[in-house]
Design a protein around this nucleic acid. Structure first.
Length: 219
DNA sequence: CTCCCGATAT
DNA sequence: ATATCAGGAG
């Protein structure tokens, strides 16, 4: 496990590598963000953006998603995968927004998680990106990077990872760090072929050092 | 824990 | 061919 000073070094390095990391899901309002994040489960941001480009032209309000057949909505998001669940969730989510929230996206985390297809991670993204509330959404990248670097433990659950990160990172840096962790994971510390050979944090990364040794043996 | 699932990288 | 992708629900 990394020390407080070592974690500070990680945060500073993330800042140098990705100074303007941000939410890459294209959206113009909280409603579009909720839809985009709900669609993004087990799918790349790039693909979500490709689909929402047309989707957000066709569907502007919650009512619009309820005006078409389930099959039509499925077909509109099919290329994203998990499309049956996601189409069902979006319809249910829109019904709830209309019935309980006057068609608006609620600002409270607890209310957000009551929406179909919106779990803890998605709610964190929405409160953080749409409403400016400090939060750390732990997705596959944040989890992988935190575990590889030793910011948290390998056996930690997603919730434990989030708690650890909140404990070890100053609150006013949560949202920024969250996006930098994602960029670091997405473009540098990748799942399949991490760039350990050029990583500025290799000296404090057990996992990276292990990988480099293996690579040497293979060569 | 399993299932949902197409697109893309390796 | 297989792993992975801004996860959530049952």
């Amino acid at each position: 496990m990394l020390t407080k000073v070592q974690i500070r070094e990680c945060l500073d390095t993330f800042a140098e590598m990705f100074p303007d990391a941000h939410c890459e899901l294209v959206h113009e309002n909280p409603f579009e963000l909720v839809i985009a994040v709900a669609l993004s489960a087990q799918c790349t941001d790039a693909l979500v953006n490709k689909v929402t480009k047309n989707l957000f032209k066709k569907y502007k309000k919650p009512e619009d998603y309820l005006a078409v057949s389930l099959e039509e909505l499925q077909s509109d998001i099919k290329s994203i995968g998990l499309y049956r669940n996601k189409a069902k969730n979006i319809r249910s989510l829109c019904e709830t927004l209309i019935e309980k929230y006057n068609g608006e996206v609620p600002r409270e985390h607890e209310e957000l998680t009551k929406l179909a297809g919106v779990g803890r991670k998605t709610a964190n993204v929405v409160v953080s990106v749409a409403f400016g509330v400090p939060a750390i959404a732990v997705d596959t990248h944040v989890e992988r990077v935190s575990k590889r670097l030793g910011i948290c433990r390998w056996k930690d659950s997603v919730l434990e990872v989030e708690k650890t990160l909140m404990r070890k990172i100053p609150k006013d840096e949560w949202s920024q760090t969250h996006h930098r962790l994602i960029f670091f994971g997405r473009y540098h510390c990748k799942a399949q072929s991490p760039k350990c050979d050029i990583c500025p944090l290799l000296h404090l990364c057990r996992e990276g050092q292990k990988r480099m040794k293996k690579e040497k043996k293979h060569a």
